[in-house]
Simulated assay, not measured.
Amino acid sequence: MHNPLPLSLLLTLLLSLAPLASAQFGFFEQMFGGGGGGQQQHQHQQQAHNVPSDSAIYRSNFDRMHCDNYLCPDTLACVHFPHHCPCPWPAHEDKFELAGEAGGSRICVSRGGFKPGEAARKVELARKGLL
């Protein structure tokens, strides 16, 4: 015959497992939107992370920048000429300089799905008016 657990040990064991059970059910409640309160809190947190749909933040950053030469409007880089502006996403875009007045300008073309050199070929066709 085996001895039953003393009552104090049993209570200690149950109390130590309570936080685990609460954490487990809290996880499922959060995952599946149970209880409603967690869902409202999640929506509030999500709204706190969205940026406004106007350009006030961008204009504020642009106005704070100091540049003696040319301030690139899309990257806020300070360069000597507009065609020296870097592309905002250089790992995913190819930069092409365009000739013109006042040092020219540049365009950034997405590499997405193109074969190597394909973006340059399309830019050249566009320059010739063939695209």
Rank of each mutant, 00 (worst) to 15 (best):
C87E: 00
H83W: 07
D94I: 06
E93I: 00
P86R: 05
Y70R: 05
K95H: 12
C67R: 10
G37N: 08
L11S: 09
Q46I: 05
Q45V: 09
F32C: 05
N69P: 00
G35Q: 01
H80D: 15
F81T: 13
S55F: 13
K122G: 04
M65N: 09
R121W: 08
V109H: 00
I57P: 01
R111V: 06
A119L: 02
A91L: 15
C85Y: 00
M1Y: 09
C78V: 06
A91H: 12
L125W: 11
P52M: 08
L17M: 13
P4I: 06
H2V: 11
L11A: 14
L131M: 12
E93T: 01
Q45L: 14
Q41F: 14
I107M: 07
G38Y: 01
V123M: 03
L5Q: 12
L76F: 02
A77P: 00
G113H: 04
V51D: 09
H92E: 15
G129L: 03
E118I: 00
H80P: 04
H44T: 12
K95W: 02
Q47R: 13
N61P: 00
P6D: 07
P52V: 06
G100V: 05
L130Q: 14
G26H: 08
A102Y: 11
R106P: 00
T75Q: 00
S105Y: 03
P116H: 05
A21C: 11
C85F: 01
D74Q: 14
L125R: 15
L9R: 15
G104M: 07
P86L: 06
R106Q: 12
V109W: 01
